Amino acid sequence: MTHSVTFGKEDGPFYFQHIQRSGSFERTNHMHDVYELYYLYHGERMYFIKDHAYLITPGDLVLIKRRELHATADSDKLGHERVVMNFSESFLGSATVEIPYLLDAFAQGTPVLQLEPAFRPTVEAIFQKMMSEIKEPLLGQHFLLRQYLIELLLLTARYVRMHPVQAPEHLSPLHEKISKIVQYINAHYMENIRLEDVAERFHMNPTYVSRMFKRVTGFAFVEYIHLVRIQEAQRLLATTTIKVIDIADQVGFGSLVQFGRVFREICKTTPLRYRRASRM
């Protein structure tokens, strides 16, 4: 059974969804050009972000940076209630200039903030105001939603200054091993990375690496390599004037044709169109 309140599009300037699920929910993988905030009210979820797996429990606030690879999945306990928000800097308007530390919480050593119980009602009250505005929209709806988001970001920026956070320990030795493999890929994506070579480097069986990599990260081995390469290609397209053919080579693709095909599959557009759109 599922109950939800949704506003906007996931890839738009602002997206909000509050959802309650009573059973299993299939794993979802993401990489997008917007920031993401995820708050868990009840239940448990597994989250893989960048190169680390996390068990998310009630009161945890997850902060995902732009273009950061992440995946969610069921834990052993099924059923959960959460809020997820995606937003672009353009939605915040001039707020990031007026409040330069507004996005500080996204720059911490860990993307997961385990909020103290006394702080949770303050955060949940902001989500409640957003839901009320979405359910009964009145004049100035977008303005109020932006103000509530700014209030939340400001509170999280204050929170991380008063409560220094550290990355949690790995959930198991297997998670730690897969994390090291992910870190290796993140550092060597521009090279010709083969599953067999990686398995040998980490003294593991290739079939086992493939199966466990998928289980822990949510991504197939080759899929993850492609996503990391496209992630860097997006950055280069948006911030440099390097030719597309040179970017394809620089991020590790064997040919321009392969680069174009994978880029379209992931980004739903061509590299040149992405470059133009990123500069509008």
Rank of each mutant, 00 (worst) to 15 (best):
K135F: 11
P173H: 04
L40V: 03
Y274G: 11
A118P: 05
R264L: 06
H32C: 03
A53R: 09
S75H: 02
L153P: 02
S4A: 07
F253L: 03
E176V: 06
L154G: 04
V165W: 08
T96K: 00
M204C: 09
F91V: 07
H18F: 04
L61I: 02
P117F: 09
H203P: 12
D104F: 09
G260S: 05
F7D: 07
V112E: 10
R146V: 01
R273A: 04
I193Q: 06
Q258H: 07
F202N: 06
S132P: 00
L113Y: 14
H18M: 00
L78M: 07
I134G: 00
M280E: 10
V182I: 05
P13E: 07
L61H: 02
R158M: 11
S179R: 05
Q231P: 08
E176T: 05
A105Y: 00
H80G: 07
L92I: 03
R67N: 12
H175L: 02
G93S: 10
H3I: 06
Q183S: 15
Q20G: 07
V182W: 02
L103I: 05
Y15V: 12
T57Q: 15
A277L: 11
A53D: 07
T96L: 13
H52M: 11
G93A: 06
F7I: 00
G12H: 03
I64N: 12
R261M: 05
Y39W: 14
A199V: 05
G79Q: 08
E36A: 15
M280V: 11
M31Y: 10
I150P: 09
M46L: 06
V62F: 08
D60H: 15
R194C: 13
F213R: 14
M1K: 13
G260E: 08
R229V: 10
H30N: 13
S210T: 02
R264G: 04
Q114I: 02
E200V: 07
P168V: 11
A187F: 10
D60T: 11
M85K: 01
V34W: 13
P58H: 00
F143I: 03
V244M: 02
F48Y: 14
P168E: 15
P13G: 00
A167I: 07
P13H: 01
F91Q: 04
L138V: 09
L145H: 00
I185M: 12
S90A: 14
V257F: 12
S24G: 01
Y41H: 04
F253V: 05
R120G: 05
L37P: 00
V160C: 01
L113T: 03
Q17D: 08
E36G: 04
E81A: 13
S75T: 08
V165M: 13
Q147L: 02
E124R: 11
M85R: 07
K77W: 03
S4Y: 03
G12D: 03
Y54N: 08
Y38Q: 15
S22M: 15
P58Q: 13
M85D: 08
